[in-house]
Structures are given as C-alpha cells and as structure tokens.
Write a protein that binds this DNA or RNA. Structure first.
Length: 588
RNA sequence: GCCUGCGUAGCUCAGUGGAUAGAGCAGCGCUUUCCUAAAGCGUUGGUCGCAGGUUCGACUCCUGCCGCGGGCGCCA
C-alpha cells in the first residue's frame, strides 16, 4: 500500500500525482493498457491547468492517429466534479482545467494537514555528511555551500519522515598536523595565540605550507606527525589545542547560521578502525601493491564502471610509508554508518572536485559488501566577479571570511530596517536584522542549481531585491500583518471554506497546491533550489492576489475565504523557509 | 592525452522529450488618500556555443567539433 493510500482521503495529495493517477486510469479504460499519463503543469494558462502528454508516444507505438486516441482518452476523463474542461489540442495533447470546487476541496485538505501536505514516506535512516571544515582554517565563503545545502537537505528529508543524522566530518587528522606542530614551534607567536588563536593558527599554517618545500622542515613535520599518531602526549596536547581553538571559531559561525549537527565525527574518530579497513580491502582481493602503496586499480577489476576503468587514477588505501589517508578513513566511515548507525543511505555534500574520489569510494564500499545507498551531492565552485575562483580577499583588500559576510549582511539589513521606520520594537531590531541578512545570504546560494558554479557578488547578495530571501520573508510578514489587523488567529481562519472566484485567488490556490510536489522533487533530486523556485512563485502569487483582492475590506464568505488563503500561504511560506534554514519573521 | 562538468537575454540564473524558451537585475514607462512600495503592472531584450543524428516533436537524448572550468599517485 502506498503512503497516499494509507492516508486514505483524510490528507492532501500531491496534485500532480493525483492528476497523473486519473490520467493513467483513463488510459487504461480507453486503451486497455498501462502507460504513464505524463501529466505536466501547463505553461500557458489558456491551455488549462495541467496537460496530459502520454497519448502521443502511445499513438506511435500502436500505429494509430494520436488525436483520435486522445479523444478516446478524453472521453474517459470526463468528470465534471474534477475537470471543468477536457480538451484535445495540438497534435494530441489533452488539456485539463480543474474545477474551482475541486481545487477548493484539495486546498482545504492541504491547509489543515499536519505536514503541510508533504508526502510522508517509508522512513529510512539517512546520514547527511556536510560542512566538514578543516582544522586551523576559518570558514570562508566557499564553505557556505556544503553547510547550507546539507542543512536544508537534512530538514527536507526529515520533513518527509526520514530519520536523518547530520554529521560534521571534520578534517581533524592527517598530514597538516605535522606541519602545524613544527610551524608553531618555528613561527608561532604566543601573544597572538592568546589574542586571536584562529587567525594565528591560520597564519602559521600558511607559513608552514610554504616552508615544507624545504626538505629538512618537511622531514621534521613527518616525524612530528608520526609521533602524534603514535600517541606522543605533548603532540596530542597540541593537537587538542588546535582542534579546540578551531572549534570555537566554527561554533560562532554555526550559531549565526543556525546550523546544528547530530554528530561531529571527524576523521580522527576513525583512527582505530584503519588497520582493519586495510585488512578487509586486502582480504577482498581488490587491491595490490604499487610503488609501495596499497592501491585499487579499477581497470583491473571485473565489471568496473566505465569511467572508473578508463581513469588511470588508483584509489590509494595505504601509503607507501604505511600511513593511512582519507580513502582509508572514508571507508571506515562508511562501515561505521552501516554498522553503528544502521544507515540505509549516506549523502555526501561535498564539492564537485571530489567526484572521482567518491565514485571510487562508493565502488570500493560496494565491493566490500556495504549495502548503503551512497550518494555524492556535488556542487560547483564559488567564483569571483571575474569568473575565477574566489580570492580570500576582495578587490578592496577585505578578507572574505564567512563571518565577515554574515556580519555585513546583518549590518546592511539593520540599516535598511531603520530607514524604513517601521513599527518594529527596538528589542526585535537586531534579531530581525540578523534573520534578514543571513536569510539573504543563504537564499542567494540555495536558489541556484547546486551543480553550476556560483558567481559570488557581495553587493547583489545584500541588495535584498527581487528573487531574494528577504522577499520571501517579506511575503510572510505581510500575511502576519493582516492577521494582526484582522484580530483573528491564522489557525482559526484556516477552517473557513475556500471560495475561488477571482483569477488571482485561483492562481494562488494552484500555487499553494504545488508545494507537496516541489518538496518531493527537492527530496528526490536532492535539490533545495526546487523549493526556492516554488516559494518565490508562491510569494508572487500572494503579492498579485493582494493587488486584486482586498482581504480585510471584503465581507462575509469572501472575507473568510480570503483570510483562509492568506493563512494557508503564510503557513506554507513559514514552513518552506524553515526547510531552507531561513528564519521566517512575523514583522519586518 | 584520459576522465568529468558547464555553455540559455547586456549581467546573474531557471527550464521533467511537448505547444509561442522563462525569472531576477540592469533599461524604459506607470502605480502609494488602499491589509507593509524589500512591492505591483506594463515594456524592451534570444542563432538556447556550432554541426550532424534519433524522434510525430529536441534547450532537453546521442555523436563530433569549438570555448571555459575541474580532476588526473600516496593532500583532502
């Protein structure tokens, strides 16, 4: 039984699914076969609300005239309580217009649904691995994508009913610590370390990275790393200090962003498991030694995926000096998620540049018997206005740390709020400014397809105009403003029957009813920007509705219905913003 | 060289094999005695990189080419 069937007629449905199902039934009745109805929203409203495209490929297959076939199907679709118009058009499309009363009925289900209409699925345990910053570095704009995307994905999957574990897989182990230890001894400034430890760590790390070109320095670093990994107490103490200092600076940014994790299992958490991983890989017979390192060569394996086999690049599980690397750690992490977390799926929200590594990792994990569904959610790089990878300083020499960006966005929002001279209580000003500023930064990142590179434009990001975070917050605030004046609680208003008379009321209803499909699409493709698109469309529908339909000045059933529309829109904007990790504000 | 991603309006970007390819910004014009103008309405703007192919139908799928980026041995 499907989730929708289980729910019976008590909960709302995904509208597109519902129409698809009606279409499928009609195809079956008319032609005696099962085929997808291929239902899509109409691009142009003069073609109706939805169109059924499935007849055309069938006509080809059956060798029949598509328009005649479409006419047969259209006949079976006749149902005056659901469709006000069923029309064969063009080469064999069937245009469908839904009745106002059926829309109103569906809308009432949606408005009063506990999950805002989001389809509840059979729950999986899903680990979302995101953010994963490195020790000794401040977060910069490049870290935003993984953090924001991952956080949104956690929330979206949770909203579907999954058990989701957010895991921050910190880069807290490995070669860089040898460098840091020697670097601190050579270049460290105790005063600076007290004053602004993360900045000092970063400075020292940069110097050490330069200095490692010198063989003596590099050897020293390797020796200190070996000591650390062997459990040397002095080095362990230093390592702990580096991690703690970094963690402090990270916590400030995560607090600003409102991002939390269920686990902080960095690379160091898997140290003890690494020898076992190597043993397992050896036992599976998929690796061999090459130049002293233990490597998996995919072109030597049976049935290896073509792109992996075509690549010379081996997957190195143990280095020639016997040490382990990130491949080893990542395999251990996969095992941990399977055995300890009982995860059905793991999702890695990591830069596209690591896509080969993840393909290799997933293939190896499969060959080692892991049964999780492993997915790499990649994303493009952050580019500067010149189209090149973003510098850590902008043209004016300003350091683009994430903290600086968030602070400036908040400042700009605050300035704007003061200028507007709204009736905002003074004690709310800072919180609202923060919600607006940070919401703008998050939305600017989330609204784009994650795969494309991202052109970072500081000014645009804090312009707060058009398709931007503050516009959505503004749309929500306006809905709440109406209820303050109406002196009715939105939850009460929702209970009124919907009357869809004006075109903008109908358009708003259609926009609202598309939410469950948008969330399902975002979850299926792991693309939060689908929710951004939906919410922006909804906010526009609400704005147009305000122009055409006075709410408070209307009367009787019309007023009650309009209040219900505003309440439903407000509820959905609020829920949708929360899925994106953006704070809805009742007053701005 | 091999692998991989991208190329859509002046700029930044959407676009499930379907009808006349859409937004925002920028430009031009209009709307505030009216529930928040961070808004609304209108308008200008396109060889969907190029060439083939598959298809009733291609921005979408396939092949080749051009252009830009990323990855390519012990960093992560």
């Amino acid at each position: 039984m499907t989730a929708a069937a289980k729910r019976g007629n008590r909960g709302p449905m995904r509208l597109e699914h519902a129409v698809e199902a009606l279409g499928k039934t009609a195809l079956h009745e008319a032609l005696g076969l099962d085929a997808p109805a291929v239902v899509r929203r109409s691009q142009d409203e003069k073609h109706g609300d939805y169109q059924l495209n499935g007849v055309l490929p069938l006509a080809k297959k059956l060798g029949k005239n598509p328009r005649e076939l479409a006419a047969l199907v259209a006949e079976k679709l006749q149902n005056p309580s659901i469709f006000s118009k069923v029309e064969v058009a063009g080469p064999g499309f069937i245009n469908l217009k839904l009745t106002d009363s059926w829309l109103a009925e569906q809308l009432a289900l949606l408005a009063n649904d506990a999950n805002d209409g989001i389809e509840q699925v059979a729950p999986d345990t899903i680990v979302v691995d995101f953010s994963g910053p490195n020790i000794a570095k401040q977060m910069h704009v490049g870290h935003l994508r993984s953090t924001i995307l991952g956080d949104a994905l956690v929330k979206i999957l949770r909203a579907q009913g999954h058990k989701v574990l957010g895991d921050n897989h910190l880069g807290d182990w490995g070669t860089q610590f040898g460098l840091l230890i020697v670097g601190m001894r050579t270049f460290g400034d105790a005063e600076a370390m007290k004053k602004d430890p993360i900045v000092e760590l970063e400075r020292v790390y940069k110097l050490a990275s330069e200095a490692k070109k010198d063989e003596v320095f590099a050897n020293e670093a390797r020796a200190e790393l070996a000591k650390l990994q062997a459990g040397d107490p002095d080095n362990k103490k230093l390592w702990e200090q580096f991690v703690a200092v970094t963690r402090e600076s990270l916590d400030v940014v995560y607090a600003d962003l409102g991002v939390t994790f269920d686990y902080w299992l960095g690379e160091s958490a898997y140290n003890d498991a690494l020898p076992g991983v190597v043993a397992t890989v050896k036992a599976a017979g998929i690796a061999r030694e090459d130049n002293g390192a233990l490597c998996v060569f995919f072109k030597e394996l049976e049935d290896a995926p073509k792109d992996l086999a075509a690549n010379e690049q081996p997957f190195i599980v143990q280095k020639s000096d016997g040490a382990f690397n990130y491949a080893t750690t990542d395999i251990a992490t996969v095992f941990h998620r399977s055995t300890v977390f009982q995860a059905d799926r793991s999702i890695y929200v990591v830069d596209n540049r690591q896509s080969l590594h993840f393909k290799q990792l997933f293939e190896v994990a499969k060959r080692l018997g892991d049964r999780q569904k492993l997915t790499h959610v990649g994303f493009g790089s952050v580019l500067g206005p010149d189209g090149k990878p973003l510098k850590t300083r902008d043209a004016s020499g300003k350091v683009i740390t994430l903290k600086n960006l968030l602070d400036e966005a908040t400042e700009t929002a605050k300035k704007r709020l003061v200028e507007e001279e709204l009736d905002l209580p003074a004690d709310e000003l800072d919180a609202v400014a923060k919600a607006v500023g940070i919401g703008a930064v998050k939305y600017a990142d989330l609204r784009q397809n994650r795969l494309s590179d991202y052109t970072f434009d500081w000014d645009k990001m804090i312009a707060f105009r058009g398709n931007a975070g503050p516009y959505l917050q503004y749309a929500f605030a306006r809905t709440q403003s109406i209820f303050r004046k109406a002196e009715v609680a939105p939850a009460e208003a929702l209970k009124a029957p919907f009357v869809l008379a004006e075109p903008s009321e109908r358009a708003l209803a259609l926009a609202l009813l598309a939410y469950p499909d948008a969330v399902a699409g975002a979850a299926e493709h792991l693309e939060p920007h689908r929710i951004c698109d939906h919410l922006y469309g909804l906010a526009r529908a609400v704005a147009s509705f305000y122009e055409e339909c006075p709410v408070l000045k209307s009367e009787g059933a019309t007023r009650a219905s309009r209040l219900a529309l505003v309440a439903t829109a407000g509820k959905q904007l609020e829920a949708g913003l929360k899925l994106l990790g953006i704070t809805p504000i009742a007053r701005m």
